[in-house]
Design a protein around this nucleic acid. Structure first.
Lengths: 403, 403
DNA sequence: TTGAAAGCGCTAACAT
DNA sequence: ATGTTAGCGCTTTCAA
């Protein structure tokens, strides 16, 4: 991206000058309900009722008020209204990074749903940083949003959410859980999705399947702990997506009696706090190269998220290998370019838009007074088979020989 | 995308239950400045000064107040504050579609800049519909945002913006101009960008360069009008990006004394109101097929935006042709997958993030009281040469023969 | 059905 | 340096 855009201004030629110079913007005080009342010759109360659509008003008054309002260019002040009613008709969304197509699409779902109910959306990015998230929540609460949807940055940071809820502002978690928080949760069933994905590769005949997934330091330990005892606790909805996907990978291998080859499991923590897209993708490319080499080289790769896929694709493109003949690729998330690359990518598609709409619906229901027990909604994925997955080379060779 | 996500709820197992059931959320009225004042044993005024950081307060009082506020869990009410100060510390952004990576990145620029000044961002999508845009602006004004950044849906629809400005709410236009509106404008110099892009292809030796660009009905006429008389009016900043790019294409051909081949200029209106991504891409694919055929077949394609590029790539992938040997491709916008496709795409990169930051800076300056003449800022692009562009086949053959 | 008046929670004069 | 008081623009009792 161009970092020095080399801006050129054109001071003399503004956006246009079709109209003759209008009068210097009057800049007079905005008309209030009082002004409208005076103009219409009725009380403020009646005016408020006519304009706000509450209480009794005669047709007579209503039309006089509307006329006066139109004439004065009256525009209601939602702030004043909110102060009294206690509803701002605004919700907050704390995403980790809105540039990520995943969150962008989710936001579309949220804002479409909100708009249908005349509710606005204030957006903030946490960048996976709990401090920023806390600050964002704080700001949103001060602005008196009616509720907050958040993709939490930390599975263990509950207090800010809890205090919001205690104050009566509902929280809905999307994409990731927070432990010990009795809030609604809407996310993908990542464990099941990953398990099915890897199972699909196994059924194609693959015996050396690699997974590329970047992880937080804590998650690495958690994975090991859970692997040590599958039965200790239910996994669903209680772990981060990244962890669930790795666990799903293991589970599929175990179910198929395949050995777990540590060299093919690239799930270690990425360096320091390198959490943004490009760096993660770069990291993924390096990891990919590592599994493409040696006697135990992978015949299939499961890329666990957007950035990983980007890295995997880059690495493959720069290698001698061809997909799917030499190496199968299965990616998480169906991005718009998945059909444009060569070969078109087979993917595990999450219902991202629905993640947004469902989260928004739950939140709006809470705002509307729904006091039922908080629910965890797990959405199912769909495996879309395109051209990047095929039986492994050995199989193909065998098949060819058989002919 | 999965349209029926087949949600499965788990009513019995909420997000978690680590903590012992906390006391039933008190749900008591939120503490106000009055409560804090009483608790601290000082006046509301002094409390306000201490908490709000304005006016004089002794250390003594400040600490007593802070202690009381902390104890009560006081949280300022930004609504009440805004009513008095007239500043909501919130701006609005009206994008056409936040799912479009272009606007997503721009929003990132806007929200980063806003956040640095403690300003929130309310987001809305217009979907290129003026009515929606009007409604969005109306809502934002009612919520008393301090200013609005908008990618206008219609170059001729001014009134809602004008009335906002008359009321004292500044407007900054991004990406596209609005005729006859004296507002700040931040956009890419599309004419120059397209001209340079096509010139680059010409210099590679191409003599049959196609352009794929979808257009609104009005734009088609405008292009013809402007072509008829280049000198009648300056083009910069006064036409939509799509129009400017087509004009740049023409200008480069003319400058190089190349004939304009109507068959290669695919800039006609797309069917009905099909303006969303997938359909536009499909349309682009069809157009691409058309220029790849016949005696006058193109040796290079200039794809004028995201969706066009997606379509062009799909069409090429499904054809017998290879890029860049048989056909060169030059795309507008540097998307994250541009380096992942085969061949890596040569692109005209817009400074999208900067579009956002600069627009936000201008708006914040206006909000801060900047009363200078509105400016049009045109940002320059950068041509990034990757592997999808090369000399045309004829040249290559000639070169090979020469060896 | 309408109107008068009391606030929502805070800041801004103003007086002390 | 602190307190008193009058609103910001609207909705909401409560009487009439």
């Amino acid at each position: 991206m161009a970092k020095q855009p080399d801006a050129r201004s054109q001071p003399t030629q503004p956006a246009g000058a079709t109209e003759p110079a209008a009068q210097p913007p009057a800049r007079t005080r905005r008309p209030t309900i009082q002004d409208v009342a005076r103009q219409a010759g009725v009380s403020v109360a009646a005016t408020g009722r006519a304009l706000g659509g509450y209480g009794y008003v005669s047709e007579e008054v209503r039309s006089r008020v509307n006329a006066a309002a139109a004439e004065l260019g009256y525009r209601p002040n939602a702030l004043a209204r909110s102060m009294i009613t206690g509803r701002s008709h605004t919700i907050g969304f704390v995403a980790s990074d809105i540039e990520n197509p995943f969150f962008a699409r989710m936001l579309r779902g949220i804002s479409d749903t909100a708009r249908a109910q005349q509710v606005g959306v204030i957006l903030t990015n946490s960048d996976e940083d709990v401090e920023r998230e806390r600050a964002a929540v704080q700001t949103l609460l001060e602005k008196r949003v009616d509720g907050i949807i958040v993709a939490p940055a930390d599975i263990a940071a509950t207090e800010h959410f809890q205090s919001a809820m205690d104050e009566g502002t509902p929280i809905v978690l999307v994409d990731r859980p927070v432990r010990g928080l009795a809030a609604d949760l809407v996310m993908t069933d990542n464990l099941k999705a990953a398990e099915a994905a890897v199972e699909y590769l196994i059924n194609l005949g693959h015996e050396r399947i690699a997974i590329i997934a970047s992880q937080r330091p804590e998650s690495q330990q958690e994975i090991e702990r859970r692997l040590a005892d599958w039965t200790s606790a239910p996994v669903d909805g209680l772990v981060r997506p990244g962890v669930a996907r790795v666990l799903g990978y293991y589970r599929a291998l175990i179910a198929a009696n395949q050995p777990v080859r540590p060299r093919l499991v690239r799930t270690t923590t990425i360096p320091s706090r390198v959490r943004s897209g490009p760096y993660r993708a770069e990291w993924a490319a390096t990891q990919t190269l590592a599994v493409l080499d040696g006697p135990e080289r992978a015949t299939a790769i499961f890329a666990a998220d957007n950035d990983m896929t980007l890295g995997v694709m880059t690495a493959i493109r720069n290698s001698e290998l061809r997909a799917p003949e030499d190496i199968s690729i299965l990616a998480f998330d169906d991005l718009d370019w998945a059909t444009v690359v060569q070969p078109p990518l087979s993917v595990v598609a999450q219902p991202v838009y629905e993640l947004g709409t469902i989260a928004a619906q739950r939140l709006l229901a809470r705002i509307g007074g729904d006091e039922s027990e908080p629910r965890a909604v797990l959405l199912n994925t769909r495996l879309i088979e395109r051209a990047s997955t095929a039986p492994p080379p050995s199989r193909l060779r065998r098949a060819r020989r058989a002919r």
